[in-house]
Amino acid sequence: MSAKIPKPTALAKPVQLPERIANVEQVRSVRTPISLNYDFIPGQAAQAYLTAFGEKRILGQRSPVDGAVFVPPRGVDPRFGVATTEYVELPDKGHIGSFCVTQVPIPGRDDLELPYISAWIFLDGADIGFIGLVGECDTADCRIGMRVEAVWKDDDQIAQTAENIKWWRPTGEPDVAFDQAGGRGFAARQAARADGTGHASQPNSANPASQ
């Protein structure tokens, strides 16, 4: 036989209010909204990136250590804690490093037709991915290494915002080899650099044009 758990004594009897507030509606919850305003500063690298992006150009930065190219640029090579100052203009073409097909809606994004594909796009000449949607492509056809190009918004809608590119669509060019695609390609290039078979200032060789 299980022991009966007694109710807390505070709940055992009704709250007795003083006479003068007996008829006041009881407070059951209080909302205390918090709001603080900030003037966000993108920083030097992000500002340069956004300015160029507002002109349909994509800027990255080159690491002074081994020539790796980061996009979007953040002013630093995070692997070494070293400032990056050299800008590199990148094409709006690349390949899919990895991707995800989403079957469930995101609150607030009714504009996304299900299912949709989000992907890490590795621009030609860049060593890290650049996130974006993949469009004009059946989900069954999407694959690692598939070549894509940017579909920009109409010129009158272009601004200094990450929303300038609507999606990335397949170009129909031959795929980048699986072991050269995305992060695998970066690892392969790093190994080549370490072996001395690659050149430190030579960016990404995943671009089929250079293969």
């Binding site: 500063i41 993108p42 920083g43 030097q44 690298a45 992000a46 500002q47 953040r74 002013g75 630093v76 804690g81 070293v82 400032a83």
Partner: peptide
């Protein structure tokens, strides 16, 4: 005015 926390801390930590 122009630097993020990352950008102004790189020289200090370096």
């Amino acid at each position: 005015d122009t630097d993020t926390e990352v950008e102004f801390m790189v020289p200090v930590i370096s």
